[in-house]
Amino acid sequence: MEKLIEQFSLGLFVWQLILFVGLVLLLKKFAWGPILNAVNEREEGIKDALEEAENARKEIQNLTADNERILKEARSERDAMLKEAREMKESIITDAKEEAKAQASKVVEQAQATIQAEKHAAIADLKNQVAELSVGIAEKVIRAELTNKDKQIKLVEEMLKEVTIS
């Protein structure tokens, strides 16, 4: 211990104290400050980047989920639309069929009516022509007959008899 105290050099102590404190301060300003700041910044950066990556991952997950949902919706919508279309098609077809049937029966009715009318007209025409023909025949017969006066009177009488009956 005595030797230690004897060895103790005040000069060295003072120098060491001054130089070391100076070294600490200089290094703080020129080295440790910037180095620790840079390291801290980098660590913060890494932390932020990791967080961002995590967020991005979550976002992508959400997006995928969204996409899936949208796809599902689209699919169901399409199915619904297809179903509707099918139904519409069916209904249109049925409607058309019914209308066609109605139309056809109407046409047939009309045709029948026309045929009936034509038939009546033809019958009437035929009647007229038969009447005219019969009148003509009768005229010719009468003309030939009437050359004989007796015969004329007999015919008138017969005709009168006929009229009363009808």
């Binding site: 130089l19 070391f20 100076g22 070294l23 200089l26 290094l27 020129f30 080295a31 440790w32 400050g33 910037p34 180095i35 840079a38």
Partner: peptide
């Protein structure tokens, strides 16, 4: 001291 200043300053 000078060596440390130089070394760590260049690192900074």
């Amino acid at each position: 001291g000078l060596f440390m200043l130089w070394m760590f300053n260049s690192m900074a």
